[in-house]
């Protein structure tokens, strides 16, 4: 107690990076205290290219105004891989982003990074998680060649591995804190296009809705993707969206989830460690989710990050936070993902 009054240098505050699939989600995220919001154009230049989602130029301009008035930054995701026939569309998206005054673009494609760094040297570049940079050497490559300022770590590394990356790169490191969990290395998964012809890399979406079919059958509710049976649900089950890696299949006669049960990532309890190791930003997944989701998750994480900055080692996760997050999680079950590896 005697030391409690001794002034300490304030810990560098973790930035909270929140998803905005729609203008109301952007406003709610900013109102609830997001430091950065990330969003995409209404097309396949970003990895959440879903019908009805995302921003056109007008709503983006309004969104940037709103965020900047309240001190938040806007990051534009251009994190899919352009092909020759569509290259100009991505190139023009970079140009429009620069002209509209976004605070950074989040890019995965090497050619597009080269174009952006050459053409818009003042535009801040973030390396997308789709860029699959899993080591400090891969991240430093992008820093040396394209001057990236921040990199989003793929969700495959343990805390120890993430810590090593942070300590060996001049680039800010952003890690995923909460949301739907990808168990494959981002940018290295073609399961969706194998069944449907469209993947995050090529079309900005995994398991596109046009390829999804739900059907009530005598054996239960069946979900199919591109005609492939992904799962069957009994009445008591909680059906997940038919993403391939969350399906139930048969291996040597055993029917189970060969990849993973539907779960959500939740790293609240790692906050003190992430802060201490010098992680720059925590990313919340979910541009496809509703404003209600964004509101809840932003509020909880804002409170938690602020509490962690004040309390440091004394920081404890509040049960009310976990309860709130559990209520909006897919699959009702949260894990620490790869950060803590019970499966390792």
């Amino acid at each position: 107690m005697a030391q409690a009054a001794a002034p300490e240098a304030p810990a560098r505050r973790l930035k909270l990076v929140c998803p905005a699939g729609t203008p109301p989600a952007l406003k709610i995220a900013v109102d609830q205290g997001a430091d950065d919001v990330y969003l995409g154009f209404k097309d396949e230049t970003n990895a959440r290219n879903f019908a009805g989602l995302n921003f056109d130029e007008r709503s983006l301009r309004e969104g940037i105004d709103y965020a900047h008035r309240k001190g938040a930054q806007v990051l534009l995701a251009l994190n899919t891989f352009p092909q020759p026939a569509t290259w100009r569309k991505w190139q023009s998206a970079v140009d429009r982003a620069a002209a509209l005054g976004v605070d950074a673009i989040i890019v995965a494609d090497t050619g597009l990074l080269a174009y952006a760094s050459r053409t818009h040297p003042a535009l801040r570049l973030h390396l997308s998680v789709q860029g699959s940079a899993t080591s400090h050497e891969a991240i430093n490559f992008h820093h040396e060649r394209f001057g990236i300022r921040r990199a989003v770590l793929p969700r495959v590394l343990s805390v120890e591995q993430a810590e090593k990356v942070v300590s060996r790169t001049p680039v800010e490191i952003e890690v995923f804190g909460f949301g739907s969990l990808s168990i494959m290395v981002e940018g290295r998964c073609a399961l969706s296009s194998y069944a449907t012809g469209e993947s995050p890399n090529t079309h900005g979406g995994c398991s596109p809705a046009r390829a999804v079919r739900w059907q009530e059958t005598p054996r239960g509710l069946e979900s199919r993707l591109g005609g492939v049976l992904i799962d069957r649900f009994a009445a008591a089950d909680h059906p997940g969206y038919p993403t391939l890696c969350r399906g139930r299949f048969v291996v040597n006669g055993d029917t189970y989830y060969p990849f993973e049960e539907p779960t959500s990532l939740n790293t609240l309890e790692l906050l003190p460690r992430l802060q201490a190791m010098g992680v720059a930003a925590i990313k919340i997944e979910g541009r496809q989710r509703s404003p209600v989701y964004v509101q809840t998750v932003t509020r909880v994480w804002r409170e938690a990050i602020d509490a962690c900055a004040r309390e440091r080692e004394r920081f404890r996760v509040r049960p009310a936070w976990q309860e709130a997050l559990a209520g909006i999680s897919e699959g009702r079950q949260c894990t620490l993902g790869a950060y803590h590896r019970p499966w390792k």
């Binding site: 909680h238 509703s290 897919e330």
Partner: peptide, 9 residues
């Protein structure tokens, strides 16, 4: 949240 209601059927 619509997704939550959906996950819970």
């Amino acid at each position: 949240d619509p997704d939550t209601l959906f996950f819970n059927r």
